[in-house]
């Protein structure tokens, strides 16, 4: 019963970005919470982050710990660059993020095993990519509140990585691993479709 509940939780975590906004949502609670909410309501960021966490944490507890430390740092640094860049959206980054979903989701679906070093590098690279995009979005949405909002986003990133990786490390039952793989396959499929969309529309939708 507990297992199924966890599965549902994980599914909810993946499906949660339902009400999406391209722009910074006003939580009514100031920029910190706005930033945290921004992550939760931006489907590409959240799905990407959850997929990254699925991938890293399924490599074991050590990889999970590295993920939890590396991702928020990478996200913050790249996010700071994104906030200060004059970009409004990047075709290349959008493609990279969709590609990330395919790569990481596919690895989860195939249950590929790798070392925790590779997982940490993945966390740095893909956490950085997602963070950069997120920083650009934050700036586009609200030029004043970007720093605090970025910190809010990173706090949410930390919470998501901690929760998802702990969930995966704690529950190793077969059925839960199947749920994980199905979610990985869904993430990869979402990434493939998004790729088609972004490339097909010639980058007009990037960002």
């Amino acid at each position: 019963m507990r297992r199924s509940a966890t599965g549902v939780l994980l599914a909810v975590a993946l499906c949660a970005p339902t009400p999406s906004h391209a722009h910074l949502v006003n939580s009514g609670l100031g920029p910190f919470y706005d930033g945290a909410l921004h992550l939760m309501l931006t489907p590409m960021d959240l799905v990407g982050l959850v997929t990254l966490s699925l991938f890293a944490a399924s490599q074991g507890a050590e990889a999970g710990r590295l993920l939890v430390i590396v991702t928020p740092i990478a996200w913050f640094l790249a996010g700071a660059i994104g906030v200060h860049s004059q970009m409004t959206g990047s075709f290349a980054i959008a493609i990279a993020n969709a590609g990330t979903l395919v790569l990481l989701g596919g690895s989860v679906a195939l249950e590929l095993k790798t070392s925790s070093t590779v997982a940490a590098v993945a966390a740095a690279v893909f956490g950085g990519l997602l963070g950069f995009q997120s920083g650009v979005e934050l700036r586009a949405a609200d030029a004043d509140a970007d720093w605090v909002a970025l910190i809010g986003t990173v706090a949410a990133v930390l919470a998501v990585t901690v929760l998802v990786s702990a969930l995966i490390i704690s529950y190793t039952a077969f059925s839960f691993r199947v749920v994980q793989r199905v979610l990985g396959s869904w993430a990869a499929a979402t990434g493939l479709l998004s790729l088609g969309w972004i490339v097909g529309s010639g980058g007009n939708l990037a960002g």
Binding site: G30, P31, V148, I151, G152, A159
Partner: peptide, 18 residues
């Protein structure tokens, strides 16, 4: 510690009552 540091950072930057 982590969580509070983040919150603290936030509050220090935007410390005012709404």
């Amino acid at each position: 510690g982590f969580l509070i540091s983040f919150l603290a950072a936030c509050v220090c930057v935007s410390a005012h009552e709404i």
